[in-house]
Design a protein around this nucleic acid. Structure first.
Lengths: 246, 246
DNA sequence: CGCGATTTGTGCACGCCTTCACAAGCGCCT
DNA sequence: AGGCGCTTGTGAAGGCGTGCACAAATCGCG
């Protein structure tokens, strides 16, 4: 979904298969599997069946098996998957063994919260720099980091070899920030500002728009409401069954 | 994607077509079109071509036309789409003409920011109540709202007829909060806590996991890095062309 | 050592979504 | 009025993803 292009694996003469050509849909689920696996590891489980892991991750077991099969055979028939082995494997695939450096631009309402978000550090990322264009914000200390002026981005990005940037600015300045990030060598951007970013083809952008999520929910509310008001439609429950796992 | 089930439109005896049975993929894009349209309206445009709107929304023009065709014929051949008409139509479909009431549970790091997020109010949502289980947080005023204890949820939800709830608590308490929301009559949940929520089939859940977004980007970083290090792979650019719009 | 229970890995079919390509429709200009 | 250029709406094809159902593989037990 959204702005992404990849694939092809051009050269691929012969030798190392370089990188398993995983489907995007699978990649998007791997982090969820990983989280579930970590949870299982904490409870002391050594192996999991596809059924068990699928339930913990909220997906179909067949889908999970197919996903895992794409990264090789790390399960044992009749037994299940070795939890720690699978954790290591997924973390390797996702490149989380590098403890990647991330910078955040825009220390406003949302940016402030993201800078202090514990979930980043605990899942393989270090927020190593905060930037803002507002001189009044520069110098402020958040969670052990000092906010620097956006003009420092180039220098800091090089020093800390930052490859991932997070944009949490108002919509109007998002594109300019994205350009600055790209110029500083950042090749992956997580964008919280509404709107479409134009970036070179080698840069990946993922967008999180909080209002859009609510609007999608609003649609379903609207839909559900119109169903209950319908002559044939009863109370909207008794609609459609499906287990939800765990 | 993720935990959703709908469709079927059971009764549907005869009469009003009730609700256009839009594909999920289309619904997910409508908010983006809407944002682009609002932007265009501000610049004074009265009509847009599918090409123009598609560029502003970052999608293929054919896809945009097909999406819009699902909600009826609101374009004029040879001219384009009437901006204000299309805005009204999409807002109606998304149910945004109701100015929906939203409550937020968990006024921690992230919740605090969400409570003050301007993007909600400006796009059809009113945050009408904040809840937290921590007595120390109760009574705190954020953005004109007073944090209430989670035990008040039932009463307040009924008074304000809240149908959408946002969970911004730590992972451990998310399920309990979800249960409380459902018990209070909430039928749509936006969940920021990592993990899978179990809810009745008539309740819609959308999940936003910030760490997962970064992990997906991390994968692409890993992939790009392994390509550049490859014998045949040059500098990772010159890979695959595709315009990025706007 | 063999058998049954269990669980993975996958071939296959189906459905959804995307994309192309073009006919139908509309307005404008002459 | 007629023709021309532009744009929508959509039929059809192709690709991707999902889920079923089952063969292959492994373990444990008698």
């Amino acid at each position: 979904m959204s702005q992404h292009r990849h694939g092809s694996t051009p050269g691929e003469a012969g030798g190392v298969p370089a990188f398993p050509d995983l489907p995007e849909a699978t990649i998007a689920r791997l982090p969820e599997y990983l989280r579930a696996l970590h949870h299982l590891a904490e409870t002391g489980a050594e192996t999991v069946s596809s059924e068990g892991l699928a339930a913990a991750a909220g997906v179909n077991s067949a889908k999970l098996r197919k996903d895992l099969s794409h990264l090789g055979s790390y399960g044992t028939r009749g037994v299940g998957y070795d939890v720690t082995l699978l954790v290591d494997q997924i973390e390797y695939i996702l490149g989380l063994d590098k403890n990647r450096a991330v910078c955040l631009v825009g220390v406003g309402n949302l940016g402030h919260a993201l800078a202090g978000y514990a979930g980043f550090a605990s899942r393989g990322f270090r927020v190593v720099a905060l930037f803002d264009a507002d001189p009044k914000k520069v110098g402020e200390r958040i969670n052990g980091l000092t906010v620097q002026h956006i003009d420092e981005l180039d220098r800091v990005a090089a020093e800390e070899s930052i490859a991932i940037g997070v944009i949490a600015t108002p919509p109007g300045t998002a594109q300019a920030v994205a350009d600055a990030l790209v110029a500083a060598g950042v090749t992956s951007i997580l964008n919280f500002a509404p709107g479409v970013l134009a970036v070179p083809p080698n840069v990946d952008v993922r967008k999180v728009d909080l209002a859009i999520e609510l609007q999608i929910l609003s649609f379903h509310e609207h839909r559900k409401a119109s169903l209950t008001a319908l002559p044939g439609g009863r109370t909207a429950e008794a609609d459609n069954q499906e287990a939800v796992g765990s």
